[in-house]
Design a protein around this nucleic acid. Structure first.
Lengths: 246, 246
DNA sequence: GCGAATAATGACTATTTGGTCACTCTTTTT
DNA sequence: AAAAAGAGTGACCAAATAGTCATTATTCGC
């Protein structure tokens, strides 16, 4: 498997398998290579979103892209590698954005600074949504599934997002900016809410004016999270599992 | 396809294919039938959650259940039918609960009545979580995927849940109990938050004390939704897509 | 206990699938 | 322009898969 007649990259190429090719001059080959790669990725992404990751075969992809089957394997090791390539840009931007938010928040001392940090992540998300709607859709679709096979990377990204969200919330919490709720809980609640709304937008569910969405989300989420005046009073409402209680 | 040598139910049996069998006395056969059905369902559910719906084959299921392949087709028409059977009880309870909530809410005139209605749905959800954790997990895992093949029913349930949630929120909104945010938005946000937290609980992510969860959720969600004193003031915070604005 | 109805079995078929490879075509290098 | 390197092709293979069915085993009505 390691030795091949073909153009396998030798040496210390750390990047996985078939993704990056040898010589890589700046010439015509590279351009063509990029084209082909994009054709395959686009065709695959469309199918993934239509049918689900597992239901799409390599044959489906190559057929949709209009290339021979063997060509696929010149560009990607397997379906998982393709998914990873698809995910890469979104993952990069998203994680960078969340880390930056964490850094800002580490120094935030007032509520306004906290809002700014959150707004910055929102901007990153909106950017990803506009630039890679299909990938975001794929993420939303598959991220909750078990981390096996081609879904591994998507699920892994989901775990990272959750972890960062909790970290961020933790930081805001440390400075006493949030109400006394476990950061793990409020962070996941926010992540869930945002993801569900993104899905609605991408699925064209009727959400109303898109431009009003961020505003609505702010009102909901931030007012839910923010430390309201006069907490810690006993006798707060409870939402227990019991069916009724007189 | 309609005619079979076997024990196919004839006549006007509206329920799908292989699920319900002919004579159905109250005797030993029925008991055994229930057992086998449950064995198949349990084995399948476990695999679905471990590997994802699409990745599990009929062979996997029958092997895990310790029966021959042909036996599967005596109990279910195909994988989709099995999933439907798996989903049935949860779907029933959940939708009934949400409809009841809608009815209560249609008459609710104060915030306390609204809380009560929400609490009742929460109770239904907690009940489902305790009684059918695997099914709930399956739902959370697969509900966002495209509605094709075996996933059709799960996706359909998800659509129903969303629709009911919006309906409910709409009702509360009509009575002026909620802040002026599009019901479609706030409803989906809440659904997303709740689903994400359920997933966390079922995935054994560290959420802290389980018993505190409902309380935290109430604080977050209801304070986010509830009409706060003194809205409608202009100049509310905005969470726009722009990266920065001086 | 006995014949009929029902259930279970697993070998079998037809198809699909991931992955390979010898070969041809195109671009780059010399 | 010729040789070398890279890229594309599709027939091919072994393994896997959904679904069937003749046969065997179990239970039911009597």
């Amino acid at each position: 498997m390691a030795t091949r007649a073909g153009p396998r990259s030798e040496g210390g190429d750390t990047s996985a398998g078939a993704g990056s090719r040898p010589g890589r001059p700046g010439g015509r080959r590279e351009a063509h290579r990029r084209e082909r790669t994009k054709e395959l990725e686009d065709a695959a992404l469309k199918l993934f979103v239509e049918r689900g990751l597992d239901a799409v075969t390599i044959d489906d992809i190559t057929q949709a892209a209009g290339v021979a089957k063997g060509t696929f394997y010149r560009y990607f090791d397997d379906k998982a590698a393709l998914v990873d390539a698809l995910l890469a840009p979104v993952r990069g931007e998203l994680l960078a954005g969340m880390e930056a938010c964490g850094r800002s928040l580490a120094q935030a001392r007032d509520v306004e600074a906290m809002f700014d940090a959150y707004r910055a992540v929102a901007a990153v998300i909106v950017g990803a949504l506009l630039q890679y709607p299909g990938v975001v859709r794929l993420y939303l679709q598959e991220s909750r599934g078990p981390a096996v096979g081609a879904r591994t990377q998507v699920a892994e990204l989901s775990r990272l997002v959750a972890r960062h969200a909790v970290d961020i919330t933790q930081k805001a919490h440390t400075h006493g900016l949030l109400r006394p709720i476990r950061p793990a809980v409020s962070a996941l609640a926010v992540v869930g809410a945002v993801e569900r709304l993104l899905l609605a937008v991408l699925s064209e569910e009727d959400i109303g004016n898109l431009l009003e969405l961020p505003d609505a989300l702010t009102a909901l989420v931030l007012d839910g999270l923010r430390l309201p005046p006069g907490v810690n009073k006993p006798g707060r409402r409870k939402l227990d599992g019991g069916p009724k209680r007189p």
